[in-house]
Design a protein around this nucleic acid. Structure first.
Length: 877
DNA sequence: TGGCAAATACTG
DNA sequence: CAGTAT
DNA sequence: GCCA
């Protein structure tokens, strides 16, 4: 199963993480950490990712067999057999989840390949170049004005949406779907169905594993989670619901949820948490009889396992030994621990990339401390090539690293290393850095120039500046982009300078009040108090590396989220990004699968470039990155070297330009736009007048009518204001509704492309939100908020979606609004899904697939995807 | 060379 | 069913 | 277009 993990770094690339250079085991760990969020992952995979012993393989087989037997049951119970390799695809337009016979028309015919992708939803704001390109003379003046307007808007960050992929399902993949689908009509809640109950094979596995302790300790266990609830900021999230559906795990989501609006990191964290929740809930979300059945089977299984263990006692012994070792280590002081590291991690070169090679690091903590968490940090440093020292020796030490991801107070640092030397006495050439720096080094797989302000404590930073004569007194309000500027180059050689230290500078760094430390980038505050830590089946003291790796991965995803926001168009390769975005628009705006995939790829490349910390220097440097191949690499270099991109020049024909404009009309996609162009339409006027015999749909008319308004993003405050009004109205209908404003708002963007509202309701009291939507909409219409409909609004169901146009006031700009109601159980999944961004979602799903699971709006599903058999597992969030 | 996320809904 | 949408 |  190991081979599957090889794709992981691809995922990492997708999410903006660089797994480049990581050794296999690291990749595995990385993925695991990301996918800890997917706890029902076939446990055998999780364990084997570390190392697969024969015993584990045996267990793996056991479980598979077990699962197969379940499969058989599934068949018996009349649920369509899932194991078949036939590609039963859902039929477009038919009632969802009705199992389609294999003969379903959906197949690989080219038309389906095309038809299945949705419009790449090129952001309309993304035409920075539209205007400076020769606008065809025959475009009407109004059109030109629109173009200008668009250009104006184009500075706003686009919302990074991308097209989807082909829906042509891999046959094996699809094999799991019919069963899922058929077990539930309509957006099925899997966990209540009898079929689903029978299907929850992995759950059993998880339970069984709970007995196994050590090796599986990473796996969340329902019991563990239930017993470790976190306090619930109530309003944000309802605590538990009924005993049947153990939603207590939900409470774990709450803390992050509340912090969310302000912190993208927390968005990610919460996503993961939700996913975890989703997975975890499964295990406990079946009826009691089912639980009993499961337990029976579980104990049987466990016995088998134990039996097989006795035949091969080595593993057990190893485990015991490991345990002893661990407890010994736990008692060690840091200084002692450092001593044993070379022995403990003797194979670091084989297992880990050595991006810290050559550094001599002093860990800024009291060397007498014993906390395992700190040791893990040491592990990490050492693993990746650092030489650790427990005493300060200015001649050797190259870096001083603190354990926090937020700049520690200088006083704190002083206390930690002060016994060795006062901070003020540390030569400037020795950098005092944050843990974030280490993580970034991991991200980029090399030693990152520690010039980013956020790596460094304020006082120290200031002092360094002074000594350079580049005193920057500006406490830097918020959107100063200096961090990224600094990062690129300019003062990279600070530390090279043999700056003599002046103790007189000390004063500058004494009070931490001088510079308010930046609001920190989220709330990393280390895994120790991270709510997510609760999920990992064991506390921080569990399971060596993985914990640290996990944290690292977590951070990576944070970063990748962060970039989008903080970068704000300023990064070393911004020009490249701009061009690539245009290229993306070109591809995405053209019909056909090829173009779509080019677009997809271009989009990925954009993401990668955006978070690449330095300017590209060579082609090699560029194509060494996963996700950037020869073609893109060449383009990047062309842009960097010549400032332009020839490809763009000749791709940017009148057809392209006009077509893109057309596609900014709601309801118009690549195909229509292309067709219109070839029919001779050139301007929005043409479209509005339905020249050349074209016919507009109702939605398209609205799209034309509000063309300009809809092309604008709104400030997040406006989104919030509209949301507030909607929420108010909704709550007046039912005060117990839960609403959440999703999308880019929730991701903390300054501007939002649309308003995306999620509604659900805890059914604990036996009431649900059925039919609330039409009533809500009527109210909103009469209050003038909603001014046009684009579709949706399927009445009386728990799930309902509405799409329309709204505005804050009669004079306000028209905005797109989506309101969707979902069953309470799907809250977690939906939260993840509708928070996006798209790239994040796609990568998560990809990751889920690689782990043999599948992720969608409704939750996380375990079951093998691209691999053997078809174990069907389900879990509802 | 196949796959790249995935599932639904609406319209004409 | 194809195209667009989320 | 990239990757395996």
């Amino acid at each position: 199963m190991a081979f599957r993990l090889f794709e992981l770094d691809r995922l990492c690339a997708l999410t903006g993480q660089s797994s480049k250079g990581l050794k296999f085991a690291e990749k595995a760990n990385l993925c695991l950490s990301m996918l800890k969020a997917l706890p029902t992952a076939a446990p055998e995979e999780l364990s084997s990712a570390d190392e697969s012993s024969d015993e584990e393989m045996a267990e793996y087989e056991d479980r598979r067999n077990f699962s197969r037997s379940q499969e058989a049951q599934v068949k018996k119970s009349g649920i369509p057999e899932s194991g078949t390799q036939r590609a039963s695809r859902r039929h477009h337009g038919l009632t969802p989840n009705v199992h389609q016979p294999a003969s379903s028309t959906r197949n690989k015919s080219s038309s389906s390949a095309t038809g299945d992708r949705r419009k790449p939803s090129i952001s309309r704001r993304d035409h920075s170049d539209v205007a400076n390109t020769q606008v065809p003379a025959n475009l009407s003046t109004r059109h030109t004005a629109e173009v200008a307007a668009i250009q104006e808007q184009s500075r706003l960050k686009k919302r990074g949406s991308i097209m989807n992929g082909s829906t042509r399902l891999d046959e094996r993949k699809s094999s799991l779907k019919p069963a899922l689908a058929s077990s539930r009509p309509n957006w099925g809640l899997i966990h209540t169905s009898n079929g689903a109950g029978e299907n929850s094979g992995d759950i059993i596995d998880v339970d069984a594993l709970a007995d196994e302790d050590v090796q599986y300790s990473r796996l969340p266990r329902s019991g563990a989670i239930q017993s470790a609830p976190v306090s619930v900021p109530s309003a944000e999230y309802p605590a538990s619901s009924n005993s049947n559906t153990a939603f207590s795990s939900h409470s774990l989501v709450a803390p992050s949820t509340s912090a969310m609006a302000v912190s993208t990191q927390m968005v990610v964290a919460e996503k993961l948490t939700s996913a975890v929740t989703a997975g975890v809930t499964v295990g406990i979300s079946t009826t009691s009889t089912q639980v009993q059945k499961r337990k029976a089977r579980k104990s049987a299984l466990t016995k088998e396992d134990k039996h097989s263990k006795q035949k091969k006692p080595t593993l057990k012994e190893l485990l015991i030994r490991a345990k002893e070792q661990k407890s010994r280590e736990e008692k060690m002081k840091l200084s002692e621990y450092i001593e044993i590291l070379p022995e403990k991690l003797h194979d670091r070169e084989q297992k880990h990339s050595q991006f810290l090679a050559g550094t001599v690091i002093l860990f800024a903590r009291k060397m007498t401390e014993t906390h395992p968490y700190l040791k893990k940090k040491l592990d990490m440093l050492y693993q990746h090539g650092a030489t650790l020292v427990s005493a300060f020796d200015p001649a050797h030490v190259t870096h001083i690293v603190t354990a926090g991801t937020k700049a520690e107070s200088i006083i704190q640092i002083n206390e930690w290393i002060g016994t060795l030397v006062p901070v003020s006495q540390v030569p400037l050439r020795i950098r005092i850095l944050d843990w974030a720096w280490v993580l970034d080094c991991g991200n980029y797989n090399r030693i990152v120039e520690p010039t980013q302000r956020r790596y460094i404590h304020d006082g120290r930073w200031k002092m360094e500046r002074r000594l350079q004569g580049t005193v920057v007194e500006t406490p830097v309000p918020k959107k100063r982009k200096r961090e990224y500027v600094a990062l690129s180059s300019e003062d990279e050689d600070d530390r090279e300078k043999p700056t003599k230290r002046k103790s007189s500078q000390e004063s500058a760094m004494a009070p931490k009040s001088t510079l308010p430390s930046p609001p920190s980038e989220g709330s990393p505050k280390s895994t120790v108090d991270n709510p997510l830590a609760e999920f990992n089946g064991a506390g921080p003291s569990d399971d060596d590396q993985s914990e640290v790796e996990r944290q690292m991965a977590r951070w990576k995803s944070f970063r990748c989220m962060q970039r989008g926001r903080l970068t704000k168009g300023v990064c070393p390769n911004q020009d490249v990004i701009d061009k690539l975005q245009k290229l993306y628009a070109v591809h995405a705006g053209r019909p056909g699968p090829d173009e779509e995939w080019k677009a997809y790829n271009t989009m990925k490349a954009i993401g990668i470039v955006r978070r690449y910390p330095t300017r590209f220097k060579s082609l090699e440097e560029a194509i060494a990155i996963k996700g950037i191949g020869k073609k893109t690499g060449l383009k990047i270099m062309e842009i960097i070297n010549t400032g332009g991109l020839k490809r763009l020049e000749y791709e940017r024909t009148e057809q392209t330009v006009v077509s893109e404009i057309f596609q900014d009309i709601y309801g118009v996609g690549p195909q229509l736009a292309t067709r219109w162009f070839s029919l001779g339409l050139r301007t929005l006027e043409d479209v509005a007048q339905e020249k050349f015999g074209i016919k507009l749909t109702a939605a398209q008319r609205i799209g034309v009518k509000y063309y300009e308004d809809l092309g604008q993003r709104m400030p997040r405050e406006e989104a919030k204001a509209i949301y507030d009004r909607v929420a108010e109205t909704a709550l007046s209908l039912d005060p117990k509704l839960l609403l959440e404003l999703m999308g880019s708002y929730r991701r903390g963007r300054e501007t939002c492309g649309d308003i995306d509202i999620l509604i659900t309701r805890n059914t604990k009291d036996g009431v649900d939100h059925r039919g609330i939507l039409p009533r809500l909409l009527n109210k909103l219409r009469s209050s003038g908020i909603i001014i046009a409909d684009l579709g949706g609004e399927m009445g009386e169901d728990l799930e309902a979606k509405y799409m329309g146009i709204c505005r804050l006031s009669p004079t306000g700009v028209a905005r797109r609004i989506d309101i969707l109601c979902i069953p309470y159980e799907q809250w977690g999944g939906a939260l993840v899904y509708f928070t996006g961004d798209d790239m994040f979602n796609r990568s998560m799903r990809l990751l889920a697939n690689k782990k043999g699971m599948s992720l969608n709006q409704r939750g996380l599903w375990a079951g093998v995807v691209r691999d053997p058999k078809s174990r069907i597992k389900t879990c509802g969030p």
